[in-house]
Structures are given as C-alpha cells and as structure tokens.
Simulated scan of single mutants.
Amino acid sequence: MVKDALCNCQKVRYIGLTINLYRLQSEDILLKQLKAGNTLAFSSLYHRYSARIYHFALSIVKSPALAEDVTHDVFVKLWENADKIDLALSFQSYLFTITRNHILNLLKRAGRSTLIVDEIMRYTAVISDDPSQILQRKQAHDLLEVAVETLPEQRRKIYQLCKNEGFTYKEVAEQLGISPSTVNSQMVKAIKSVQDFLLLSGALSVIIYVWPFL
C-alpha cells in the first residue's frame, strides 16, 4: 500500500515537472507540438493565454459566465483546428481573431435568444451610471441611427414606425397601404441590414448596448 502511494506521488511529481517544463518551452516549439496533437503543449498554451482571452471577452460581453463560455469555446476550436495553424503568422493575433469571430456569432445569437440578452443586460445594468458606460451607450445609439439611415426609404420608414413609434405590423400596414406580410418581410430585412452594419463597423464594445434592442 505504502509502495503504491509512493509510486503515485512520484507519478504526480513527474507529471507536474513535465507540465512545468512544457510551460518553459518557446511558443514556436509548443505550436509545432500542438499541431502534432500534443495535449501538454495545448495545456501550456491555455495557461499562457486563457486569462487574456477571458478578460478580452469580458470587456465586450460584460457577463463573467458568457466570457467563460467564450474562452472555453475558443480553446476547443483551437484544439479541433490545431493542424491548420500557420506557424508563419502571429499566434496571438490568430487566437484573438478566433475570439472576436466567436463573439460576433454570440451577438448574432443574442438577436434570437432572450437568455443571452438577459445575461448581458444583467451586467450592463450594474455599471449603467459609470461615465464611460454612459458615453458608450450614447455612441451606440448614434451608431444605430447611422445604420438605420442606410436602409432604403420604405424599409427605413417601416423600421422606424415599428421600433421607434411602437406601431404593430398590422397598424403599419394600414398606414402605408401594404400587407402585414410585406411589413414583416421588410422588418426581417431591415434588422438583418442593421445588424450587419453594426458588425462590420467593428465597434464591438459599443454594439453590445444596442444589439438586444434591434
């Protein structure tokens, strides 16, 4: 029994020493090993970058739970696509690009998921009196107005009547002399166009304030 316990301690000590040695390896070596499917190399890269990815995600999505989910999903994607890593390019830039794209997809899903919206708003509300957050919200709504102005005239009018003035699709249809199904179709296209405009603007930290209200 004692012999087995000592053996296990030696194994744990050996594994710990091995992990520490991997953490001392240069990034180029770790990436080559990662491409070959080495799990210890992956763990070392996770140890180096996970906190940075988490804080980057948190600065945008605000919710710690969502930031943790983003971080987890980014490293799952990294592992699944390890063989595609280009060693000639900056790994840090590659990792943050994955993170940015994942957050963009999260924001797209927010338009269809009240759970994501509620989680985001739970944390943005907490800091609503912060001067920097007040400025960001103003910038967000200014950006939203610019996005709406890019819509074709009738689509813009339908969007403004529904979103800004609170008319139902049926009421808008009666006002404009068109069918409710046309109003619905135009609203779907308008919301997609506005979302695409916001995403292409790249102002993620600003977009998060208006996205749930589109």
Rank of each mutant, 00 (worst) to 15 (best):
G37E: 01
V206N: 06
S59R: 15
D130N: 12
Q195L: 03
L135E: 15
S113C: 05
V172L: 01
N101T: 14
Y22E: 00
L78S: 00
L200N: 15
V183Q: 08
E27Y: 10
Q33V: 04
D196M: 02
S59K: 14
T99S: 15
K11V: 08
L151Q: 06
V148C: 09
I120P: 12
E153I: 13
T71F: 09
W211F: 12
R137D: 01
A140V: 09
S63C: 06
A36T: 10
D83L: 04
Q186Y: 03
T18C: 13
A203I: 06
A140N: 06
D28M: 12
T99F: 01
V188N: 10
N38G: 11
E145C: 03
S128Y: 01
K3A: 13
L161N: 05
K32R: 11
I207C: 10
H102M: 09
Y169M: 13
D196N: 10
S201H: 04
F42N: 04
A41P: 01
S50Y: 01
A51G: 11
T71E: 05
D73H: 02
A140W: 01
Y14W: 11
F91S: 03
L45Q: 05
V206M: 05
L45P: 06
I191F: 10
K189S: 07
D86Q: 08
S128L: 02
L199C: 07
G37R: 00
F96W: 11
N81L: 02
C162D: 05
A147W: 12
E27F: 07
L34I: 08
V70I: 15
H102E: 15
I98E: 08
L107M: 12
Q175F: 06
Y209I: 07
V210S: 15
H141V: 04
T114N: 07
T71G: 10
M1Q: 06
V74E: 11
E80H: 08
K138N: 13
V194Y: 01
A82N: 09
T124N: 04
K62R: 15
